[in-house]
Design a protein around this nucleic acid. Structure first.
Lengths: 195, 195
DNA sequence: ATTGAAATCGGCCTAGC
DNA sequence: GCTAGGCCGATTTCAAT
């Protein structure tokens, strides 16, 4: 199977800017035909390089609160699922967890809601301390770096080389370093493999 | 002019999940006609509530580096434009600046590139200190909070009420608390107003 | 209802065996 | 020389307005 290439990167850049651009326009700019663009976009969707088509919103329209940065230090308990639990809190938009048990949450909340919000998602004894900062500015740029586009093994998260295995399970393509990683993945996911 | 309402919020939620969903599907779910959905989406685009149609990518495919959190403390110099300068650095995806002169940058870089990257965007004397943390997990959820959808004054950033002014300048709609804010905006933006 | 875009299908070409 | 996979052109289907 062909690996993603420069043409794919160019398509992604154009879609990032405007996902409604007609395939014909993209086709002209990257110098292939419209059906080819379609094929490649589909393939990248299956490969989960493209996670979804979506919209960027002006977040400032949706809050009566103020942008905050919550800086949490945790006791050395389990951190699994904590990132997800926090981001599910209404108003929290980003959560970053570091390897040294710090958690940063960014979102728009009224400040009196911060404490209750944290307790919604966490056990009180997990929290060593937290500090709240006011945000002055934020910027986001999901740009594509110059580097190569790689696929990552669904089991061990390493980069999959040319000799990797790609199989189709439950409607998305999964890729693995080798058969042993594939085996592991299939064992962990109880649904019977389709191939 | 009609203010955005619950129907608009419902449309946005659906588009967030899948911006390629046909207007017909959306129309059924929010109980209006497809042309109405079209009109509302267009209006929200003009109002810049919808900033753009785009794609979400699996960032892990685009880096040979590792996810880092760079925690910068600045000397109390001017912070203007600094957020933008940092986010323009290749590999940096998010930048958050707090009111107490801390700057958090998140991105994928090889660690030996962190120092040079910062010096690309900042003057050395602006940096008080910085620490680099390894990221273990990250999550994002650009969800729409239950609260009201508000428009913000392009001059003073306050919420624009029912009595606000909305005018069309250079292809997007701008809204203002009142005529004085509109005047200020027009003076600052040298292009002649179209109305 | 009209217009235009996207998915589809069949044939072609190329690369790898 | 044969096969598999990618690419393209024409057509059909479907969505947007």
């Amino acid at each position: 199977m062909r690996s993603p290439d420069e043409t794919d990167l160019a398509i992604l850049r154009l879609l990032l800017e405007d996902a409604r651009r007609p395939y014909n326009d993209i086709a002209t700019q990257v110098d292939v035909s419209a059906p080819t663009v379609s094929d490649r976009v589909n393939r990248m969707s299956e490969l989960d390089i493209i996670e979804r088509f979506t919209i960027d919103l002006d977040q400032s329209c949706f809050t009566d609160g103020v942008d905050l940065l919550i800086d949490l230090e945790l006791r050395a308990t389990s951190v699994d699922g904590l990132t997800e639990a926090l981001v599910a809190v209404d108003g929290i938009e980003h959560v970053f967890t570091t390897t040294d048990a710090r958690v940063l949450a960014i979102g728009s909340l009224r400040s009196e809601r911060v404490g209750p919000a944290l307790l919604e998602a966490l056990d009180a004894e997990q929290i060593e301390s937290y500090r709240v900062h006011l945000l002055q500015a934020r910027a986001r740029d999901p740009s594509i770096t110059a580097g190569p586009l790689t696929l990552n093994c669904d089991t061990c998260a390493d980069t999959v080389g040319e000799d990797g295995v790609t199989v189709s399970l439950d409607d998305t393509l999964h890729h693995f370093c080798d058969e042993s990683c594939q085996k592991l993945f299939e064992e962990r996911n109880l649904t019977a493999p389709s191939s």
